[in-house]
Design a protein around this nucleic acid. Structure first.
Lengths: 239, 239
DNA sequence: CTTGTCTAAATGTCAGACATTTACTAGACT
DNA sequence: AGTCTAGTAAATGTCTGACATTTAGACAAG
């Protein structure tokens, strides 16, 4: 595998890190492949060795690469990736070629986890949590009709689910909210955003909101499951 | 807050990172506090500025610190910590003074999540997963009676739960296995390891194993809940 | 066939100078 | 007095070159 030449004309090591990471996340590179040497990368993108090292440090911290002193840099297998590192979420977001295996795995996780989270949220939500949920939901409503506001709608969608995780008032669950943006963005092109589909989605989101507001945990669980069910079926996660 | 002088006589920046991280994880330092400057840390521990920068880079990646160019290094609040970063797990493990708030949050997460994971495991487990579970369980049995094998027993305990996460065959759930070691280690001193308690624990673990082996998802869920229930009650997570 | 040594090549580390960002201070001007 | 501006100090960020350390492989001696 070689690198697609794309010199980052602005910004520093973060640009480079994103570039390299996305090359890995797209599914090019086999586990065990040797990654280019620092000096080669630096020469290729015309950046200093420092920048390269900083970028590679990030990728290593994310579990994408493994570096040893005299050997070089090796590509790690997908099972070792730190999918919950916020940097990973940032890299995954906006990547159109995200590995389908990853999209499916993340969605399968959400399908199994979010009902539980919604149930916890129904038990633990405070007034400000309800406000966040309502605000996100009304944003979804406003942007549902127009087609050009699709990106904005997705942002409100992310905000809604993130508010659910936060409402659980658990530090660990809250961290998983980072997975939402890449998961939702990866599927944005998938749904034909037919009007009836969107109406249906809105209705189900509203049921989650209502269940949390009325502190009905089991209702929140089933409602959250219904929100995700259609896409889960499409992805072959559940029948 | 000042640093407890403890010059790491061996190893490089990782030792320093662990030291600094544990100082934060123990709950000293208030959010917003200014962290010592690079040069001061270097002078204090007699290491080069490079080592300090490498260590601080790790802590920053873990969400413990926030660094800006001319301002300095600030301590971030607990809600921003990346609890799922494997480095964090490593730092938390073996830390006796772990913030009780953290211990409780992690255990509350496990109490809500592991039943689901066990259910998935019952659906997705392969032969090798069953083997891992059995191996870990027999290890727990062997080390249950003697008191001096308490640490070894805890390792088998970790291995058992980790095998459950792996058996779910979901990349995201698998990552959460990293939380197990600090969670279990933090509670090792808590239980008086009375014999009847240990017997009870073994019985419940066996029920999880049997349920997964017989592919009974709902039985696995309830069994996993029972494994965690007693400690959850002790911690005040559930009544 | 094993062992030891040498060499090349890669990442890791150091030290110093310099760049950049930020907060603060002191004036100058209205 | 108040406000804008310039300047200064202090912190993190970056660059560069040299050197250290680790690894894999080649090659020869036993």
């Amino acid at each position: 595998m070689t690198l697609n030449a794309l010199p980052p004309h602005q910004g520093g090591a973060e640009q480079l890190a994103r570039l390299l990471a996305q090359s890995l996340l797209a599914g090019h590179w086999q586990p065990g492949d040797v990654f280019p040497r620092e000096l080669d990368i630096g020469a290729h993108f015309n950046v200093s060795r420092n920048q390269v090292r900083n970028a590679l440090t990030s990728l290593t911290a994310a579990g994408l690469l493994e570096r040893t002193a005299g050997r070089g840099t090796l590509v790690r297998e997908i099972g070792d990736w730190h999918l919950l590192d916020p940097l990973m979420s940032e890299w995954m977001t906006g990547l159109v070629n995200l590995d389908p295996q990853l999209v499916k795995a993340i969605y399968a996780f959400r399908f199994s986890a979010e009902p539980v989270v919604a149930g916890l949220a129904a038990q633990a939500a405070q007034a400000e949590d309800i406000e966040r949920l309502e605000s996100a939901f009304t944003g979804m409503e406003k942007t549902a009709s127009s087609v050009e506001a699709r990106a904005e709608h997705a942002e409100y969608d992310v905000a809604f689910h993130d508010a659910t995780y936060r409402a659980s008032h658990n530090l660990v669950w809250r961290q998983m909210g980072h997975l939402l943006r890449p998961s939702i963005m990866a599927l944005i092109h998938r749904s034909q955003d037919r009007t009836d589909t969107l109406d249906d989605s809105l209705t189900r989101h509203r049921q989650v909101l209502d269940a949390i507001r009325s502190r009905n945990a089991s209702a929140a669980e089933t409602a959250a499951r219904e929100v995700l069910r259609r896409t889960a079926i499409d992805l072959g996660i559940v029948s």
